[in-house]
Write a protein that binds this DNA or RNA. Structure first.
Lengths: 139, 139
DNA sequence: TTAGTTGCAAAGGCTTTGCACGCGC
DNA sequence: GCGCGTGCAAAGCCTTTGCAACTAA
């Protein structure tokens, strides 16, 4: 489960109660949370943790390459702890929920050289859009 | 060139100098601009146009389905006037520039039913990440 | 004419930052 | 003990909104 925490420890990252809680919260959910949602869940375990620390901590995990930041159509970014497992995202257009999904084949191969315009292309991600079961039922 | 303006007129959208200028600016660039960049270019043609109007206008074009809003890792959203032409995006991780590119095949078909988790999936987009020629040279 | 659009300025949501205190190593 | 991490509150950036004046059809 807490694979993320493990990886951070192995890297010799200075561990504090706050950082541990943020890592646990992120890794414990199969959907991807916003910074504020991470903060809310973190407060349950460590009431005095501040929003600033959650933001700082998430930012550092992203810099370390252990967490991926997901831009969204809604305002707040979401955070994905599975940075080392290749996967794609399924996004609900209505509520913004993001789920990991898996497809076969590497999309990188689908971009021919003449469509690269001199860019050094290092990654590709697919985002599937639709409605989650709950929102489809409500609509 | 100004295909977007054409489409908006055909829909009977009430046309004002501000709306025309926003449409012209958006359609005139082969990269995708932020709202503020659109405003800056719009001011060159119509000095008294306000930021609020640019935001409102872009938002309405998105609601009409004539422009696509692109979430980015950087803070500001970018706007894509080619809503009716299937294409993907090539993003520079450093400066945030977005370019349209074309691949073969429809990514929607790559998501098997058992990976849809009850979602009604209606669209898919691919984002390629890398460094644009300028940023690669600067790095 | 008149309903819809604009500009202004203020408010709003999300995120970052400066600084003094506190804690992991 | 040292240096990095934390919390607080304030600032910052991007965006939205309320309202009175204006204008396209």
């Amino acid at each position: 489960m807490s694979d993320l925490l493990e990886r951070l420890r192995e890297r010799g990252w200075r561990m504090t109660a706050q950082r541990r809680v943020v890592a646990e919260v992120l890794d414990g959910e199969h959907i991807h949370l916003t910074a504020d949602e991470v903060h809310a869940r973190a407060v349950d375990r460590l009431p005095e943790i501040s929003r600033a620390t959650v933001y700082n901590t998430l930012g550092e995990m992203v810099s370390l390459g252990e967490v991926t930041e997901l831009a969204t159509d809604h305002r707040a970014k979401r955070y994905d702890p599975n940075a080392h497992r290749p996967h794609q995202h399924l996004v609900c257009a209505r509520c913004g929920t993001i789920r990991d999904v898996h497809t076969s084949g590497d999309p990188l191969n689908q971009l021919p050289a003449e469509e690269r315009f001199g860019f050094t292309v290092s990654g590709a991600e697919i985002t599937y859009r639709g409605l989650c079961p709950d929102c489809a039922a409500a609509a």
